[in-house]
Design a protein around this nucleic acid. Structure first.
Length: 347
DNA sequence: TACCCCACGCGGGATACACT
DNA sequence: AGTGTATCCCGCGTGGGGTA
C-alpha cells in the first residue's frame, strides 16, 4: 500500500508543527493528549506528516526506566519549518537549532509536559530558551522555563526526574542566589528528588530571600496549578465552599502584632486560626510558620491551620515538628482534580 | 477526505524453567 | 550458583475497515 501523505494541511497539523517548533520534541502521547486527537488517528496523522517530510520520528529511550517500548518522539524538519513560515509564523530558529541531545531528552519531555498542561489552562509559558533570552541569562543555567498565571505572577520553573545529584541541586542553589527572581516553582517526578529539594532548601538563605518557593510532586503540581492557577484567592474560595459551615474566612480581625505570612484568619469549628495552605509545600510559608513562636502564640492565641495533602502530611509534620500550635486539615489530590473539572463545567 | 476504531503484529524485558 | 532457552506479557503503532 502507498504511504499516506498530507493531502491538505489541516489547522491542527499546523498547530502540531508549531508545537514541535516551540517545544523541540514531543512524544506521540503528548501530541495525542494536548491536541485532543484520538489515539489511532494520532498515529495516522503523525505518519502522514512524517511521510511528507515535515517531521522526523525517533524511538524514545531511557524515559521510563522499566519499560522496553516507550513510544516515539517527533521533531520538526526544515521542510516543516518552511511550511510554518508559509503559514505566516515568524520563525527564527532552524531545524538544526532544535535538535535534542539524547541525555537531555527525558528532562525535556517532563518539562514540556508541565508547560503544555499549564498552557492549556490559563497560564502563559516560556520555555527555557525564550526565558533565558528575555532575561538575558546565561544559556548554561538550569531554568526550565518561566510561567505566568492569570494574575500576572511569574514563577521560575525548575523540574527534576526521579533522582537528582547533589551537584545539580547546588548548581541551582547558586543560580537562585545570583539572579533576581523572587518566585520559584519546583516540580519533581519522584519522591527522591522531592525530598532532596525540601531538605536542601528548608530554612535556607535562598528561601528567606524569596517571596514563594513552591515544591510539587509532578501529579499534584499539575492538578493544583491547573485548578487554582497558583492563586491563593482562588484556592481560598474553593476551600470555603467545600468546608462551610465548619470553616469561613474572616474579613476583619484584630491583632496586636502582624506576623509575616500569617495574614489570613479563618474561623474553624468556631475557633479563630491563621490559615496557611501548604498544598504547594511552599518553603517560604513553612519558614514563616516556624517564626510564629510559642511566645507569639501565647500572646496572640490563634493556632495555625495548615492545609495539607494526605501523601504529604508526614513531610509537612516533620518540617513543622518544632511548632506545636498547628492543626492540619487535608485536601486530597483527587478532590483538587474534581474541583478543577467542576470549575470547567461551570464555565 | 478527514476523522474514528479494532485486531493484530512486533520487540524485548521479565519470568520460569532446564541444564551444566 | 551461573548460564542458556522457552514463554509470557505489555504496550506501541500499522493496516485496514468503517462513518460523515
Amino acid at each position: 500500500m502507498a504511504k499516506s501523505i498530507v493531502k491538505e494541511l489541516q489547522p491542527r497539523d499546523v498547530e502540531i508543527l508549531k508545537g514541535l517548533y516551540d517545544f523541540r520534541a514531543l512524544s506521540t502521547e503528548q501530541i495525542m493528549v494536548y491536541y485532543h486527537i484520538s489515539k489511532w488517528y494520532t498515529y495516522k496523522k503523525l505518519s502522514a506528516l512524517r511521510n511528507s517530510g515535515y517531521i522526523i520520528t525517533t524511538p524514545i529511550k531511557g524515559y521510563n526506566p522499566n519499560q522496553c517500548r516507550q513510544g516515539n518522539y517527533h521533531r520538526i524538519t526544515e521542510t516543516g519549518i518552511a511550511c510554518l513560515r508559509k503559514q505566516g509564523y515568524s520563525i527564527e530558529r532552524r531545524a538544526y537549532d532544535l535538535r535534542v541531545r539524547i541525555r537531555h531528552l527525558p528532562f525535556l519531555f517532563m518539562t514540556n509536559e508541565i508547560l503544555m498542561t499549564l498552557r492549556q489552562s490559563n497560564w502563559e509559558v516560556q520555555d527555557s530558551r525564550d526565558a533565558k533570552k528575555q532575561h538575558n541569562l546565561n544559556r548554561g543555567v538550569n531554568i526550565q522555563g518561566i510561567v505566568k498565571n492569570s494574575s500576572d505572577k511569574e514563577f521560575v520553573l525548575y523540574s527534576f526526574l526521579e533522582n537528582t545529584s547533589i551537584k545539580n541541586v547546588e548548581k541551582i542553589a547558586s543560580e537562585i542566589a545570583m539572579h533576581k527572581f523572587r518566585d520559584y516553582l519546583f516540580i519533581c517526578r519522584g519522591g527522591g528528588s522531592f525530598q532532596s529539594i525540601i531538605n536542601r532548601f528548608k530554612d535556607s538563605d535562598e528561601v528567606v530571600k524569596s517571596q514563594s518557593f513552591k515544591v510539587f510532586p509532578r501529579g499534584l503540581g499539575k492538578d493544583y496549578l491547573t485548578a487554582f492557577e497558583g492563586s491563593e484567592k482562588k484556592f481560598n474560595s474553593y476551600l470555603e465552599k467545600v468546608l462551610k459551615p465548619k470553616l469561613f474566612f474572616k474579613t476583619s480581625f484584630k491583632s496586636r502584632k502582624v506576623f509575616k505570612g500569617l495574614n489570613q484568619v479563618v474561623s474553624h469549628n468556631g475557633e479563630e486560626k491563621y490559615l496557611v495552605n501548604l498544598l504547594d509545600s511552599d518553603l517560604v510559608k513553612i519558614y514563616n510558620i516556624k517564626r510564629y513562636r510559642k511566645e507569639d502564640f501565647g500572646m496572640d492565641g490563634r493556632k495555625v491551620l495548615v492545609v495539607t495533602e494526605p501523601n504529604l502530611k508526614a513531610i509537612h509534620q516533620n518540617l513543622l515538628e518544632s511548632v506545636h500550635h498547628v492543626d492540619f486539615i487535608e485536601v486530597t489530590q483527587g478532590e483538587i482534580k474534581a474541583a478543577h473539572n467542576n470549575l470547567k463545567m461551570e464555565e
